[in-house]
Structure formats: C-alpha cells, structure tokens
Amino acid sequence: MSDFSWSGAIAQATELLLAVLLAPLLAGWVNQCRAWLQNRTGPGVLRPYFVLRKLVAKDAIIADGASPLFRVTPYVLFGCMCMAAAIVPTLGTDLPYAPVADAIALVGILALARVAMALAAMDIGTAFGSLGARREMMVGFLAEPALLMVLFTASLISHTTSLATVVETLSHKEFAIYPSLAFAGVAFTMVSLAENARIPIDNPATHLELTMIHEAMVLEYSGRHLALIEWAASLKLFVYSCIGIALFFPFGISGGGEALGLVLALPALVGKLAIGGCLLAAIEIVSAKMRIFRAPEFLGTAFMLAVLALLVHALLES
C-alpha cells in the first residue's frame, strides 16, 4: 500500500465503527417513524439496542441435527455486512480499504450473505425455513441484476466501477440534470425495499409464518446468533441507505483527506439518514404487502427502470 495516509485510515475506522454502532439506531428510527405515522407511541428509537442486549444475554439453542453451517452463518452474515459497510463511502471517499472490492464485488458480498442465510435456513430442515429460503432466493435473483444495473449506470457516468471513485466524481461534478440517475434512483429504492425485507415485498413485523420471507429463515435462531443476525439485518439496511445516499445525494461527503471535511460530513450523513428513514417509513405506511407472486413484477419493473437508466444515459448524456 504505497499511498497510506493516517487520515484515510482514521476515516475508514470511523466509518466502519459508525456503521456498526448506528445501524440498530437507524432500524429503531424507522420503526419509531412508522409508529408515529400510524398514530402509535412506538417502542422508542433505542429499542433495537435493548433487544440486542437481551438476546446476547440469553443462551443460544441449536436444533438437533444442525450442521456447523448453521452455527457459522450468523458470523458470515455479520462479517459480510461489515465488509460491505467498509467499502461504501459514507463520510469520505479517501478509503484505504476501498480498492479491495468495487461495485460488482459489493453485490457479490451481499449475495454471499444471502446464500449463507438461505443455506442455514434449509440446514435445519423445517418447512418454514426452506420456504423462506426459497422465497428469499427468488427475490434475490430478481433484485440482483437490477442492483447491478443501477451501479453500472453510476459507473458509466464516472467511467469506473470503484465505488469510492464513483462517489468522488458524482459529488464534485458541476450541477447538471441526469435523467438516468433519476431512473436509477427509483430502481434502487425498489430494490432496497425488496432486499431489506420491507413492506411491499415482505413485512418485517409479521407474526404469520406463511407470509414471511426473511423472518421465516431465522425462526430457528436464538440467543447470540439471533442477535448477530438482527444486527446484520440492520447493518444491511444501513449499507443500502448509504449506497443510496452516496450515489444519489453525495453532497457533503468529504473528498480528500482533510479532517474538517470528515467532521462536517458526519452531521450531513446523520441528517440524510434520518430523512431517509422517515421516507422509508412513509413508503411502508402507504403501501400494502404484495402477494409473493407479484414480487417478480415489482422487481421486473425495477430492472426495467435500471436498464432504461443505462439506455437513456447512452442516448442523452454521452
């Protein structure tokens, strides 16, 4: 590593730490916003932390016949999400860790987490586990190409697939209207709703096993394993929100290695996440959960929008 800089290392460490620590807060904030919009008092924004503490204190029970895969998966999941969080630029774009993986590898990391989760859910052999795993893989294989297309659109604009450089280019461009980015933004929103098990596709608060996707896969987990999985799920939401912010609202992300920029980037990030969480809650309030067989149509639309973004970029902006 030739151009190692301390400010970059500090930015990288802060960013990762921030992601891991703030992720449950974001999940709590979304739930709280949703409760407020539904005229309920809500559980409070700190509830996910209490849940995590409670789960860590409990014993982890492993089902009979569970293979080592079942025990390892929560750690794989959490590790994948941490790695994804380290790649996505949230505070500054000068990240020493960023060359490790570009946008395509990021999608691969997210896919690895999904496959591990699905395998672990099938490992126990319960009906609901494999039902959830199959549904998750169906949603995943439809959402992944759309996500790739969104990232490709941003890559085409900035001529690179390295996320840090993409964000660097996007945040320092002079103002211009990009129809392609608008399309990609809508497509990305749809993909993130599907990927984070949010309402039009999956209901995160459901207690009805037959309609579950994500929840059905984690039914057999308990104790510290469940805590890690919940934490990883909130990290995933955090990572997706940060990708959205970095690609579509990159203003305020510090470019070079200056310390002042990083300090200023923090409140900007928190503010944008708070607004994003509110919007997510609002989307969840106004839409109803779809039948599972409508999900291909929803994600097909997302894919179509993302492809249109690519095409429109090729036609109008090149």
Binding site: P179, A182, F183, L308
Partner: peptide, 23 residues
C-alpha cells in the same frame, strides 16, 4: 444548456410514462 437538459429530462419522463402505460 439547462433548457437542453430539461428537454432531455422531460423526454426521459415521457419514455417512463410509456412504460407505465404498458404495465
């Protein structure tokens, strides 16, 4: 330049609406 960009944006919206009608 901005007018050109706005026309392009509106054209893109037109295409989007065509797809929306299709769906």
């Amino acid at each position: 330049a901005l007018t050109g960009q706005i026309i392009n944006l509106l054209a893109a919206v037109l295409l989007l609406l065509s797809f929306a009608m299709l769906a």
